[in-house]
């Protein structure tokens, strides 16, 4: 069904990205320890980042830096030689955002542990219905 001739690097990394995201979601929904949930978020973030980068893949081309391995005069059209630079820019932002959120979540985890001496998610249901 899936023709291996057309199964490129892009496909492989895309698949990897999706698998990581699913694993991350699984972790978020099933793990009980708060730190493990945060780790699951990290896994999902990694998955998304791989996904984004792999969407930028162009077969056979190289990094979007105009130096020795591409024609290096300014002003020349390099669009035949490079992969898509836009996802790389997006993923940069995504990584930073992921970092910020993870840092915040860890701070929360620290405070939650200080408050109740446990990291079990089920113990933190003070507010309900």
């Amino acid at each position: 069904m899936i023709n291996t001739e057309y199964f490129t690097l892009g496909h492989i990394s895309l698949l990897l990205g999706f698998i990581l995201i699913i694993v991350g979601f699984w972790g978020i929904l099933t793990q009980k320890n708060i730190v493990k949930i945060i780790l699951a978020f990290s896994i999902a973030d990694a998955g998304i980042n791989i996904l984004i980068v792999s969407l930028g893949y162009v077969i056979g081309k190289t990094a979007p830096i105009i130096d020795g391995s591409v024609v290096q005069k300014a002003g020349i059209d390099v669009s035949d030689s490079i992969v898509d630079p836009v996802p790389q820019a997006l993923v940069l932002t995504s990584i930073v955002i992921g970092f910020g959120v993870t840092a915040l979540m860890l701070a929360y985890a620290m405070k939650l542990f200080t408050a109740k001496k446990t990291l079990h998610i089920n113990k933190f249901n003070d507010l309900k219905w």
Partner: peptide
């Protein structure tokens, strides 16, 4: 503690939503 746990629930919920958004 109530606000800390509410804040945590908030941040994990919005993270899930933003993951879907980003995809």
């Amino acid at each position: 503690t109530r606000s800390i746990s509410a804040g945590f629930k908030y941040i994990i919920a919005t993270s899930v939503i933003s993951t879907i958004f980003l995809i």
